[in-house]
Simulated scan of single mutants.
Amino acid sequence: MWDNNSFSGKPKWKSKGNLNKDVFSANGLSIFNNGKRYPGGDHIRYKYTYQPSGKTVSGCLHYPGDTPNSKRTYASGVVLNYAQWGGEC
Rank of each mutant, 00 (worst) to 15 (best):
E88P: 00
I31H: 03
S15A: 14
Y46Q: 02
G40S: 08
S58I: 12
W85S: 03
A83G: 01
C89R: 06
W85L: 02
Y74D: 09
Y63D: 04
W85P: 02
S58W: 01
V79Q: 08
F32V: 08
G28P: 05
L29I: 12
N33Q: 02
Y48K: 09
G40C: 05
R37N: 06
N34F: 02
G59C: 09
Y38W: 05
E88D: 12
I31C: 02
D66P: 01
R72D: 14
T73S: 15
K16C: 05
G59I: 06
P52S: 13
C60Q: 07
N27R: 12
I31L: 15
N4S: 13
Y82M: 01
Y63V: 00
N20A: 07
F32G: 00
G17S: 14
Q84K: 15
L80G: 04
N4F: 10
Y82A: 05
P52G: 07
Y38F: 05
S53P: 04
F7R: 07
V23Q: 06
G54R: 11
P52Y: 09
T56M: 13
D42S: 06
L80S: 06
V78M: 05
Y38S: 13
C89N: 07
T73M: 06
N33F: 00
H43M: 02
R45W: 05
R72K: 13
Y46D: 02
I31P: 01
P52K: 12
S53Q: 11
S6T: 15
R37P: 04
Y38L: 10
S25V: 06
N5F: 13
K55Q: 12
D22R: 15
G17N: 11
C60V: 03
G40A: 06
H43L: 03
V78P: 03
P68Q: 11
K36M: 05
D66T: 01
G28F: 04
N4C: 08
K47L: 08
S8A: 15
N69Q: 11
S25K: 06
N5Q: 12
Q51K: 12
S70L: 00
A83F: 01
F32I: 09
Y82H: 08
A75H: 09
C89Y: 05
H62L: 00
L29A: 06
P39V: 09
N27K: 12
N4W: 10
Q84V: 14
Y50H: 12
P64L: 08
N4Q: 09
F7N: 08
N4G: 11
S30P: 02
P52L: 08
C89D: 04
Y38D: 14
N27P: 00
N81W: 00
C60R: 03
G54F: 10
G54Q: 11
S76Q: 14
T56I: 11
K71H: 13
V79T: 15
G59P: 06
D22L: 02
C60G: 04
G35R: 03
D42G: 05
K14T: 15
S30G: 08
G40T: 02
